[in-house]
């Protein structure tokens, strides 16, 4: 019994790790560019498919990891510079529909190239480790460790480097950052490319765990949104904390009572939103649609 739950906890940590990686872009998009980034999961899907393509053709997972991340970052670059620049500052509906269209185009392209059926991706290594009596694949543990490392790297970057501080300042007040004479467009682009690269990276890591299908991004999108909303818009720490909560709700909750794996995250979000409309770590006064009450 204990082993069962311990396994669930560790599986949950892996889910948290992936959730965190793919949510960073949505979180920062909310915070910095003030847009609702519906298309982030395109990069996640691209990353996963690149892994599938390269693992099945060359057998090298590392190559898939590299290419998946780069392709995702590259697509992010194109989308940001060609399209998103035109929607910054526009109304909510507009940005949501435009970014959702990009999402649909991305899914369409995937279907066109790879077809509709789901594809398996082999685990890069099949080692099983025993942690306090629970048997878990080493790969899952590593995914979690990588994700946490990524969080600390980003956190260090944001707090210790001047460029990172400019990003934090931009999240607080983009007009003022511009007023100082900082090229905010470049900050947007670089941040966006890194974020989409991370989403792709998440897709790569998740590919062996869930397999790849053209619609894999849809479900992930919902979970990612719940994660970001629960954590609070624009707060990286909030995103991590809520990813950790979500992972456990899905995994442990699902072990206790099957349907909780799916309903649990929504329930948690509903409750938190009712009492804290800005999420766990959200900043007040960050309105997109309506004026604050």
């Amino acid at each position: 019994m204990f082993e069962l739950y311990l396994t669930a906890v560790i599986f949950g940590l892996t889910i948290s790790g992936i959730l965190f990686l793919v949510s960073v872009g949505i979180c920062i998009g909310f915070g910095l560019m003030r847009i609702v980034n519906m298309e982030q999961m395109v990069y996640y899907t691209f990353g996963a498919y690149m892994t599938y393509a390269l693992v099945s053709s060359t057998g090298s997972f590392l190559l898939g990891l590299l290419c998946g991340t780069l392709v995702a970052a590259g697509s992010g670059y194109i989308v940001e510079t060609q399209l998103l620049r035109r929607v910054y500052g526009k109304e909510l509906m507009f940005t949501m529909v435009v970014t959702f269209s990009v999402f649909m185009i991305g899914i369409g392209l995937i279907q066109y190239i790879f077809g509709l059926s789901s594809k398996p991706v082999g685990m890069p290594f099949k080692v099983i480790v025993t942690i306090m009596g629970a048997n878990v694949p080493l790969y899952r543990v590593i995914v979690f460790i990588i994700s946490i490392t990524v969080y600390f790297l980003i956190d260090m970057f944001l707090n210790k480097t001047i460029f990172g501080r400019a990003i934090r300042a931009g999240i607080e007040n983009p007009d003022q950052v511009q007023g100082l004479g900082i090229n905010i467009r470049r900050i947007f682009t670089i941040t966006f490319v890194v974020a989409s690269g991370l989403a792709g990276f998440g897709g790569v890591l998740n590919a062996p765990l869930v397999g790849v299908t053209p619609y894999m991004g849809f479900e992930m999108l919902l979970f990612a949104f719940i994660t970001v909303i629960l954590g609070g818009l624009g707060s990286l720490k909030g995103t991590l904390v809520s990813a950790l909560i979500m992972g456990q709700v899905v995994s442990v909750g699902g072990t206790i009572y099957g349907p909780l794996a799916f309903v649990g995250p929504f329930i948690v979000m509903f409750i938190v939103i009712l009492f804290r409309p800005t999420g766990l770590y959200g900043v007040k006064g960050r309105a997109f649609g309506f004026e604050e009450e």
Partner: peptide
């Protein structure tokens, strides 16, 4: 309807998934 625009959009998505 008390929710801010972005939350309103997404909470509906969540409701739909539910």
């Amino acid at each position: 309807i008390r929710l801010r625009g972005d939350y309103f959009a997404l909470i509906n998505a969540a409701t739909c998934a539910m």
